[in-house]
Structures are given as C-alpha cells and as structure tokens.
Design a protein around this nucleic acid. Structure first.
Length: 261
DNA sequence: AGTACCACCTGACGGC
DNA sequence: TGCCGTCAGGTGGTAC
C-alpha cells in the first residue's frame, strides 16, 4: 500500500522503534530487493552503524547513517516494516532483516520483491538522479499551479508523475480527484484557477487525513472512495455505480456524476 | 511530452 | 478442494 501516507507511517514506525540502536548484523533473503549493492557490501556498510534519523521524499524513505550516507527504502507495490524481538516472530516475506544489539530486529517485508533497499552517498544526488519532484506534502501552491499549467496530459497522470510531484500513486490520485470533484482525464492545464486551488487544498487534506488515520483504508472517513474500489463499488456521495477504466495506464475508479471534465 | 504496453514478482480472488 | 486466469496501491524501459 505504499504511497506517501503509508511511507510516512513507516517512517514514524522506524522513528519510534529503530533509531540509535547499533546494527549488529544484516540478513538479506534475496538480492532481488537490493539496489546497486551486493549482500556483502550492504552488510559491511551497515554493521556497527546506527540509523540516526529518517526523512522522506515522496515514496522513498531515507535513514541517515552518518558521514552523509543514507540507507534508502522503497516498498514497491507491497511491503512494510516490522520490529520484533523473537526469531520465531520473524514476519513472512521478510527480505532484509536488521539485527540490533538490543536483541530486537527490524524486518523489511516485501512479498512481491518489487521494493528496493540501497545505500547512497548523497541524498540530494539520489533525488537528482531520479528527478523526483517536490514532495506532495511540502509543495507550495505556486509550484503546483505552474506544474498543472505546463502539463499537457490528464490530471491523474500529472498527479502520479513522480518527476512533477512525488508521493501520490494510483489509489490516492483517485481519492484526491474524487474529493475535489475533478474527472481523472481532465487536462491538467485546463483546470480553472479556482479549481486549482481547490485541488491543491484537497490534495493536502486527503494526504494528512490518511496519515492521521495510519493510512488504513478502513479508518478513513466514510465519504472516501478508497474502500469502494472494486467491482460493483458505489459512489459514497451519490450512490451511483462507480466507473472503472484505465486512465494513464492504471485502473481508475471515479464517479461520472460527481467528477466532471 | 504523454501514452500504451511489457517486465519484474507473487499472493489473493473469482470462476468453474 | 483445486486449478487457472486475472488482477494488484510502483517503477523503468521501449516504441510511437
């Protein structure tokens, strides 16, 4: 479920469990989830160090190791962290496990192996290489407005393009557009000034609301679209059957009555 | 620049 | 119960 709200929750989880504890060892179940580093180097780089602090940019989570280095985590389409004590509690699908000297462990869980763990010398270089746009929670209206005005594609595509704005994925782009009453295929550049501001405020509100509710779909307000995805889902505002079609290559759900082009 | 499609992976789910 | 096709909250590459 890893879009911005989910990753923010994982960040806080890491902050409350895994900071400033000496890493005694690292276990990598499969190199598939490593990015640009071997099992041996990853272990060598981490052994004896501590995760000092965390930061997030979009869907990427960074853990500071000191001397400018950072561990980088990306969860792909599935994954989470779990902090536990006993070996017998090792979570299913753990791909990388960090052993701390206090006897606890932090597992990077990643069933589909689409996530990645790596080490970078510079956070800025990493963000630069990926060309990541401003984080959706930090972006200012002026920049948001400029991005919409310069985009030639549909608004759903624009919101999900990590190079423009980072952090929004398929689920939350649908949610934001639903709450803002904008059709996902509407041209980003054709959104009125008034609607731009409304969309901007809605984006911030939806993301913050999700975070406040631990990014758990069942804890979100009943007026949210998220739990109504799937066949036969109905609009929580008007009761009409939701439209389902591919938009920008991803399965989109929206209400034709409440979301106009 | 934007879209469409494939790949990467594997679990979950519906249909039969 | 079990097999099979399809789908899934992301990213990256290619071709158009």
């Amino acid at each position: 479920m890893p879009e911005l709200p989910d990753v923010e929750i994982y960040k806080r989880y890491m902050d409350s469990t895994s900071l400033k504890k000496k890493i005694r060892d690292v276990h990598v179940e499969t190199s598939k989830v490593l990015s640009g580093i071997s099992k041996r180097s990853l272990t060598r780089k981490l052994k004896g160090k501590k995760f000092l602090s965390t930061s997030r940019r979009g869907k990427y989570l960074f853990a500071e190791l000191g001397k400018g280095e950072f561990a980088v985590f990306h969860f792909g389409m599935t994954g989470e962290f779990r902090y536990y004590k006993n070996e017998k509690d090792e979570p299913e699908y753990s791909k990388v496990i960090f052993d701390f000297s206090n006897g606890y462990h932090l597992a990077f869980i990643n069933p589909r192996k689409l996530g990645r763990v790596g080490i970078v010398e510079s956070k800025e270089d990493f963000i630069g290489k990926k060309s990541l746009g401003a984080d959706a929670l930090s972006i200012k209206f002026d920049e948001f407005k400029k991005i919409l005005g310069e985009s030639r594609g549909g608004i759903k595509y624009t919101l999900m393009d990590q190079k423009k704005i980072s952090g929004i994925g398929n689920i939350y782009s649908d949610e934001i557009l639903f709450q803002a009453g904008i059709h996902p295929e509407m041209k980003a550049s054709e959104i009125s000034q008034k609607k731009q501001k409304e969309l901007f405020n809605t984006m911030k509100r939806v993301l913050k609301t999700a975070i406040r509710n631990d990014a758990k779909p069942n804890k979100l307000p009943s007026s949210y679209l998220i739990s109504h995805r799937g066949k036969g889902g109905k609009c929580p505002k008007c009761g009409q059957k939701l439209k389902n079609k591919k938009v920008a290559g991803r399965p989109a759900y929206f209400c034709k009555k409440k979301q106009k082009k």
